[in-house]
């Protein structure tokens, strides 16, 4: 099929960018979206033009490196799908496809479609862990965890950190991302020990990074490629209020 692509091109962080139009022909419906961009880049290279820079790595939907705001949707039109798992069969011959980077003050553009998501790492560094050193831990089966709790914690733990929640949210809020880790660890006995400090610190860092607040629109969960639930945000709010009311940190 033949397509028209409108792609955000931007030289670097400090330059202004713009949408540039590229025609692209002979695309197979079985291609993945990123393979389609590979084809475009090979064409651009052959013409001696600079290929489009975009983040990607595992191409199997798990590493969270790929991003892209495609036709007004984070990771494109298919629900529960990362861009690398989006296939061209979901587009039609003659379509115009607009491709933009994630937009958020906390995610500045490095180049073209590549953004800086290190804010996410800094939030995790603020408390997204259980403080245990290697060694000296109890036997794994000494901490029985009800299956229902383990499953719920797992659901939260599947977050791939891609940033689609921020990209889709009208406020560029990172609440879904932060809450996934907060609630995963708050549910598990291992994480409960330092749950209060964790939620306080992670939320504080989230605010420092300049993400917006949560308006409970649900856009984040709707666009999340791995289906992280809004329940996590509620749980984080609960944890936060409880922690603020009762923690030792004044």
């Amino acid at each position: 099929m033949d397509l028209t692509l409108k792609i955000w091109r931007q030289k670097d962080k400090n330059s202004a960018g713009q949408l540039v139009t590229y025609p692209l022909n002979g695309i197979s419906p079985d291609m993945s979206f990123l393979e389609m961009l590979d084809v475009l880049n090979e064409e651009l290279l052959v013409k001696g033009e600079e290929p489009v820079a975009f983040d990607h790595d595992c191409r199997e939907g798990i590493c969270g490196m790929c991003s892209l705001f495609i036709n007004g949707r984070a990771h494109g039109p298919e629900r529960g799908t990362t861009t690398c798992q989006l296939h061209m069969r979901h587009f039609k011959h003659g379509d115009t496809i607009t491709i933009e980077p994630w937009r958020a003050a906390a995610f500045p553009v490095h180049k073209d479609l590549i953004v800086d998501r290190s804010a996410f790492d800094r939030i995790q560094q603020a408390g997204g862990y259980v403080s245990v050193n290697t060694g000296g831990v109890p036997d794994a089966n000494e901490i029985p965890i009800p299956k229902t709790i383990a499953d719920k914690a797992f659901d939260a733990a599947t977050c791939i950190g891609c940033g689609a929640c921020v990209a889709a949210c009208k406020n560029a809020s990172a609440m879904l991302f932060v809450s996934a880790k907060v609630s995963q660890l708050a549910m598990l006995p291992q994480g409960k020990v330092e749950a209060k400090t964790r939620v306080e610190n992670m939320v504080a860092q989230m605010d420092v990074e300049g993400f917006g607040a949560c308006s409970n629109t649900g856009a984040c969960a709707a666009e999340c490629p791995v289906g992280i639930s809004l329940d996590n945000i509620a749980m984080m709010n609960r944890e936060y209020l409880g922690a603020k009311a009762s923690s030792e940190n004044v």
Binding site: F69, N71, T98, R103, A172, S173, G210, F211, G212
Partner: peptide, 13 residues
């Protein structure tokens, strides 16, 4: 704050 969190909007949304 929310407006400031996204200074550049999307061309298509």
């Amino acid at each position: 704050r929310n407006k400031a969190a996204r200074p550049v909007g999307y061309a298509e949304n």
